[in-house]
């Protein structure tokens, strides 16, 4: 009983904060320990990436041959690599690359997928069938091999990387948007809007888009680990971000070359990948609990 009373009291005092749906959602998201930790870690990653030039103790591409292969110390938190570059500074700058590719890649995939999804959901049957088959065929391309082929033809660069990611991941957004639109199309409020003579564009913008935001935000958070994996994987193969620029993948490639002599390089380069992928996955789970409380128990 005491617990129930405690729970009943706070809303009175907290009302101004809890009033906005955003604040409510945020409170729900960080209400579980996993969600709170994931949010904190992701926030730290983003801050570290944004303020990398201020935080990084050294220049990420400054070569210092005299301190090659040094293990972690107070001067070099994660040690130094094969040409004496500070690994901690490189990890921070690598976060910029990883988050930039994730942000632009998922945003482009989302825009492309959502647009096609709305067209498929609202348009005639045949367009829907064509788009579904097209997206199924994109999904059936082996992502890493396909990306390798694209990079080999267009040359390795961040833009190629973002382009491949956007193209390969768009079908995921397409499916979510299309299926949601097909369900929403049959709801009473859309029927009512149609009956009142609202144009298709108006129905799409005022009734469909707001209902799609939740599932799409969850999907983005879930896709970011995959994007980070692809970016670091391609950079590891030497086909993504090009040296001397710091990316977690190129650092892993350096570490792999010296895996017997100085395994700390690979360990240091792998840690941020693990932290980032795990944090974004848990954040995605927490966001799902917010936007789709029914699946909350699925965890």
């Amino acid at each position: 009983m005491a617990i129930a009373e405690d729970r009943a009291a706070p809303p009175e005092t907290r009302r101004p904060l809890a009033e906005s749906p955003f604040a409510k959602g945020f409170q729900r998201m960080v209400s579980s320990p996993q969600g709170a930790i994931a949010f904190a870690v992701v926030a730290l990653l983003v801050l570290g990436a944004v303020f990398a030039p201020l935080i990084a103790p050294y220049d990420p591409i400054a070569i210092a041959p005299r301190i090659r292969f040094e293990g972690p110390s107070w001067a070099h938190l994660l040690g130094t690599d094969q040409i004496g570059r500070d690994l901690f500074s490189r990890v921070l700058y690598g976060a910029r690359v990883a988050l930039k590719v994730s942000l632009f890649g998922t945003t482009a995939a989302l825009s492309l997928g959502a647009m096609l999804g709305i067209i498929a959901g609202l348009g005639p049957r045949w367009i829907d069938s064509v788009l579904v088959i097209f997206c199924d065929s994109v999904r059936s391309l082996p992502m890493i091999l396909f990306a390798l082929a694209v990079v080999a033809i267009y040359g390795p660069s961040m833009n190629t990387l973002i382009g491949v990611i956007a193209f390969s991941m768009a079908p995921g957004y397409f499916r979510v948007v299309r299926n949601q639109v097909l369900v929403l199309r049959e709801t009473d409020f859309v029927t009512a809007a149609n009956a009142m003579g609202a144009s298709r564009l108006r129905v799409a913008l005022t009734h469909l888009v707001p209902n799609l935001i939740g599932p799409l935000i969850v999907l983005i958070a879930m896709d970011i680990p995959a994007v980070i994996g692809i970016e670091s994987g391609l950079s590891f193969l030497g086909q993504g971000i090009q040296p001397p620029d710091a990316s977690w993948g190129t650092m892993l490639s350096d570490g792999y070359s010296y895996i017997r002599k100085a395994p700390h390089i690979a360990v240091a380069a792998g840690l941020p990948v693990i932290v980032a992928t795990v944090a974004f996955t848990f954040l995605g789970e927490a966001l799902r609990d917010v936007f789709d409380p029914k699946s909350g128990k699925g965890r």
Binding site: Q34, I228, S232, L252, A266, V278, T281
Partner: peptide, 21 residues
């Protein structure tokens, strides 16, 4: 949830360091 998104090649490098090296 922790392992689900970890890139396999990264696990491979860590496994290499731990079990082989």
């Amino acid at each position: 949830t922790s392992v689900i998104a970890m890139p396999a090649f990264l696990l491979a490098i860590y496994a290499l360091i731990i079990f082989s090296v």
